[in-house]
Amino acid sequence: MTDLNGPEITRLLRAARSGDPSVQERLLELVYDRLHGIAARLFVGQPLGVTLQPTALVHEAWLKLEANDGEFNDRQHFFLVAARAMRNVLADAARRRNSQSRGDGASRVPLEDVLSLAVDDGSALDALVLEEGLTELERLNVVHARLVELRVFAGMTALEAGQALQLKPSEVESAWAMAKAWLRRRWSQS
């Protein structure tokens, strides 16, 4: 696992602002590894205490990076990457658990709290259902998909997310309403 606190991630974050997709991918990989590491350490088998929430995890990763390199200050960009990485971590975990538990009936992996937007049958939203919806939304409107990621996986406010995506407040509101309605409609149909 590459260390998030190493100089490479800072360099990549700087380079990523140029928009080079290969840099973006490499960055995503690094952050994914790091979040996965933190998650594996914190989510597994705790008899006591509260599990860290996904969003808190992303922020913890950020704080570590920032503490390590005080000059670097591109929080928004980091969060864009980290929210995507977090989404991947959770989706992968859900797939893994589904494949492990196949056969004993328990196949749904409900997401906690933020993601527990109840669907019509009242059950909690499944991580994989969200993942499928986001993947499709990504094809239709990538900004809307990023907005959902930032709000759900990085715990950003609409305003913060809008800044990160360079949207006006009115645009954020409209995009958030649309993305939610679209995702929800998709779930109610599926």
């Binding site: 808190a56 709290d113 933020v114 937007l117 109840a118």
Partner: peptide
Amino acid sequence: IAEAAIARQRALV
């Protein structure tokens, strides 16, 4: 509920 949950996440953060 979702907004409250997001708010709680933010508080935690």
